[in-house]
Design a binder for these strands. Structure first.
Lengths: 334, 334
DNA sequence: CTTCATCGTCGAACCGCTTCGACAAAAAGG
DNA sequence: CCTTTTTGTCGAAGCGGTTCGACGATGAAG
């Protein structure tokens, strides 16, 4: 493997000159520049990332922490992962992808060993154990999902409250006066998935303001429980004319369950949900829904993280940004 | 940030002694050992991964290359990613996850800059552009998916030929004499996804041997094209009694499409496919299928890769391992 | 024709850790 | 009791880069 010393020798200059030619931090004469480039090409030289990281105290990679819970419905996760990776790469960063069961330990490990310049946490819960070690780390952190304490960290999330209100408004405007709400499974609430109650509470509050009825239920995360659950709910709420589904697993299975039951959408039941365009495409979902924008969230998180990496002080106070929901009308409501 | 020098000073020993205490490569007296541990605890010292990597020429991380093609059906990918990450972590390696559009460039970048000790390539195609730069790299590589030239690299893949034969055998044994085969979309064949033709050719060959009819068709990758396609195929092959689906996107959408068409499985049509247990669970798929074992493939690839990293010479000649398919009978065939 | 910047280059120090050879002290062997 | 071996520790060199200060050469200003 060629080192910068080899390049220097072949080009007949000192190592520091090669380094400056590479970084452009000092001016180099045209002739020298050319000899160095020739030597680099001849030797097939590439900078050793580890050595550079040691010297500059910059690894040019960020950590991405993703949890895979038992019984969790993961497909949507991939979109966040992708957008984070793409955004990072675009800014010149590589991604260290960590899926340790012990998320807090993983955060401590990669930050304290200086393997990364910053960390993105995916799917952050209310009392997420990864937040404390990240806050304690030297590196900045960006979260996707809202924890109880956001001090010292940048947070990005969909505005679930506004999403819920938007959907209730939409259905109310169409004349619906009794609505079923399928929330995430109970274990998501227990684990502290704040988006669950942020959405539900806002929906209930809004329905209350309109004086209409809303029936909140937990979703299930796996078949056949999903089908059983939906059927039970529909049986129990025969007079409801619309359903809001705030759960990936349920909405993915919904078309089949409804078809099996002989329920036509939107003739018999109006359905509205919350998922991303890509998610809907993958599962062939025909429902009017709030766009969950994983691509936008991932990008924003990374951009802010990199801003902080480059200029820890100038980047200003930490941010909590709820991105505005957007309703995609696919005609599943009347 | 505490360095090994700080620990040495606090413990009253030399830096090398601390290093040996950490690695256990030379014996250390009990007393010294204790003082060093105390100093480490007091200072909250962690080894700087970059510095260690530079000194040992080992990064303790592996690269994982994943491509996201336009219009590709990605959910299954996540299972490979997960199993690779889990296996790597279990062996003490972190994962540098790379999704660059330019896969070949990415391989060159992370290997020549010594960011990783080895590389796993996901979803390898027949003439995969990433294979050549990986072969040229100093680091070993493991592939999931079969390229045309496997020289110098370990390859792991499901035995698609045997899978196809197993499914044809299964249906033939149940009395079926005319079978529809839905292969991956045409663009997968064009891109060189060898699993497409490996499966199809074997199925055709086997059907030929039995003297039964098989109708190969390409699948589609997105709704609504998938539904249109399946309906067209079923219309064109009215006398077929069974269908083999070798395509994630199609099989995921199949329940809905068949239900809409009023086709009951297995009464009207026997259906067999190829996907993983988890994939089936996510999409609520009820079909008898060959298990695609992404978890096993990921694990095998990583284990072999690490074996080669640890002992480049002793690990023996490169391996091409087709893992044996396993039929999961879910009762969708009669 | 001095004086002073500016430009281009070099040498040395440093980033934080590992490892080799050396060596004194303690333990084992004859 | 004197070798010989083993044990525990140290200093220095090296991994492959970056960066700072110094310095001669060149050009501009007075």
């Amino acid at each position: 493997m060629a080192t910068i010393g080899d390049v220097a020798r072949v080009a007949g200059v000192s190592r520091s000159t090669v380094s400056y030619a590479l970084s452009g931090k000092r001016s180099i004469s045209g002739d020298t520049q050319r000899r160095i480039q020739a030597a680099i090409a001849e030797l097939g030289f590439t900078v050793n990332a580890g050595a550079r990281a040691l010297a500059t105290a910059q690894t040019m990679s960020i950590g991405l922490l993703s949890q895979f819970h038992q019984d969790e419905f993961a497909p949507a996760m991939l979109q966040y992962i992708r957008s984070v990776c793409d955004a990072a790469r675009q800014l010149g960063y590589d991604v260290l992808f960590v899926t340790d069961g012990d998320g807090a330990g993983a955060v401590k490990r990669i930050t304290s060993s200086n393997q990364v310049d910053g960390v993105v946490l995916l799917d952050v819960t209310h009392a997420d154990p990864r937040v404390a070690p990240l806050r304690a780390a030297r590196q900045p952190g960006a979260l996707i999902g809202l924890p109880s304490d956001t001090a010292g960290l940048d947070v990005f999330d969909l505005d679930f409250g506004e999403s819920a209100r938007m959907l209730v408004d939409h259905l109310y405007g169409l004349g619906h006066r009794e609505i079923i709400l399928i929330s995430p499974p109970e274990h998501v609430f227990e684990r502290g998935g704040a988006y669950g109650w942020r959405f539900r509470d806002a929906a209930i509050e809004r329905a209350g303001r309109y004086g209409i009825r809303i029936h909140p239920h937990f979703g299930e995360s796996q078949q056949p429980a999903i089908g059983v659950n939906i059927n039970a709910v529909l049986d129990a709420r025969k007079s409801a004319t619309a359903m809001i589904v705030h759960n990936d697993a349920t909405v993915a299975a919904l078309p089949i369950v409804l078809q099996a039951r002989g329920v036509r959408v939107p003739d018999d039941l109006s359905v509205a949900s919350l998922y991303s365009r890509d998610f809907g495409r993958i599962f062939s979902l025909p429902y009017t829904a709030v766009e969950s924008s994983p691509d936008k969230l991932g990008r924003l998180a990374v951009q802010q993280l990199v801003r902080r990496i480059l200029d820890p002080d100038q980047a200003g106070p930490t941010v909590v940004k709820f991105i505005a929901p957007e309703l995609m009308d696919r005609g599943s409501t009347t």
